[in-house]
């Protein structure tokens, strides 16, 4: 009886070790590993057995027609949706049990396809909220206003202003974020995401709605963010931007991974051409 349960226990723990300690541990230097992710919405398969990994420091383009599942993939990496099966490893650690805010603290930040700034708050305040996981003061700090709280607040404000300068938005700092022009709002979302000091930044269609001048500025900004050693995933429909800036491109279509490789490889891929140019 006892030995049986011990056996069962050791079996179980061995079994779980199979999942926890991946066989290809040699590749654990990847910042992100996505393994066999699957997600259904009702009858729609938004993610169908997606696997890939991302090396630190690169920009990875994620392309695919509308409804391919790109945003859903981001929602699963950031922990907003739970996958039906499969798992995501961040810095080699499974993220399944982590809450969204814990993942942000661990270093994953994102922007939204449709701008989701805090409209009634000023741009500076938006960036300060972005810094939430890097600051500490809570209810008692707010109520007592201890010196360390004030110091933290001052430092946070300085850092937020630096970030606004970095993204070229200093002049808008004290304006309600909802009043900004759309192009600026897209940049502001990047500033807010950078405020959490991410190691991995997920950008969901950052160039959508931007004019060519703004798109170019965005390209340069992404380049500068990359120089700060932030790894990025970038959903983009603007092919010249996506192909020009990415070190690697992943193509999704109807929840399936069609191709993965350097921009040149992907551009010459037969399946990708079909997905984009029409199919039967």
């Amino acid at each position: 009886m006892v030995t049986d349960s011990v056996k069962a226990f050791s079996k179980q723990s061995l079994g779980s070790c199979d999942i926890e300690c991946p066989k290809d541990i040699t590749r654990s230097h990847d910042i992100l590993n996505v393994r066999n992710l699957t997600k259904m919405f009702g009858g729609v398969t938004a993610q169908d057995d997606i696997s890939f990994s991302i090396e630190p420091g690169i920009v990875c383009g994620l392309i695919g027609p509308n409804g391919a599942g790109k945003t859903t993939l981001f929602n699963m990496i950031t922990g907003i949706y739970r996958p039906d099966s499969g798992q995501v490893l961040f810095n080699g650690r499974p993220t399944r049990k982590m809450a969204v805010h814990q993942l942000v603290r661990a270093g994953i930040a994102r922007t939204f396809q449709h701008v989701e700034l805090f409209g009634s708050m000023t741009l500076l305040e938006n960036v300060l909220v972005g810094m939430h996981v890097r600051t500490k003061s809570g209810f008692w700090g707010a109520v007592t206003r201890m010196p360390w709280v004030m110091r933290e607040e001052r430092r946070a404000r300085e850092k937020a202003m630096d970030l606004l300068e970095f993204t070229g938005l200093t002049q808008y700092a004290h304006r309600p974020a909802g009043d900004l022009p759309v192009g600026r709002q897209k940049m502001a979302e990047i500033a807010r995401a950078l405020a959490s000091e991410p190691k991995l930044l997920l950008l969901d269609e950052p160039a959508a709605g931007l004019n060519p001048v703004e798109t170019e500025a965005l390209g340069k900004l992404i380049q500068r963010v990359k120089e700060r050693a932030v790894t990025m995933m970038l959903v983009e429909h603007d092919m010249s931007l996506a192909m020009g800036i990415s070190d690697k491109v992943i193509v999704l279509d109807r929840g399936k991974k069609l191709a993965e490789g350097s921009p040149r490889e992907v551009q010459n891929n037969q399946a990708v051409m079909e997905a984009y140019l029409g199919r039967g």
Partner: peptide, 12 residues
């Protein structure tokens, strides 16, 4: 202003 965004930015 936006609970989803707030969550995604790291607010518990």
């Amino acid at each position: 202003d936006g609970e989803n965004a707030s969550l995604a930015v790291g607010v518990n």
